[in-house]
Amino acid sequence: MEPVFEANLILSTLLFTIGILGVMWKRNAISLFMSVELMLNAANLAFVSFAFQLGLLSGGILVLFIMAVAAAEAGVGLAIFIALFRVRRHIRVDEQDLLHG
């Protein structure tokens, strides 16, 4: 039997909504980043579901590109957080109000 296409899309939407809630509720920058990863995963799931439903291979390729971008984002973002933590001793995003740290 095939996986249910609509259920997968609903699952993807749910994950994306949870990611949005995390981005809006959390104050810790790392929790925020993990919510963004969750949203990227939701998008990946939607891509693969559509690829499977429509019989295309491009979905998998787009997922690979998204993963590369996510890896780059995690590397640079976490380096920024470490630099920020050295200056401020915390990484609460709502208290960062200076562009030069």
């Binding site: 590369a68 971008v69 890896a71 780059a72 984002e73 590397g75 640079v76 380096a79 470490i82 630099a83």
Partner: peptide
Amino acid sequence: LLLVAVIGAIVMA
């Protein structure tokens, strides 16, 4: 992009 990210991470850290 990955090359830029690697260099950027090193510069930031």
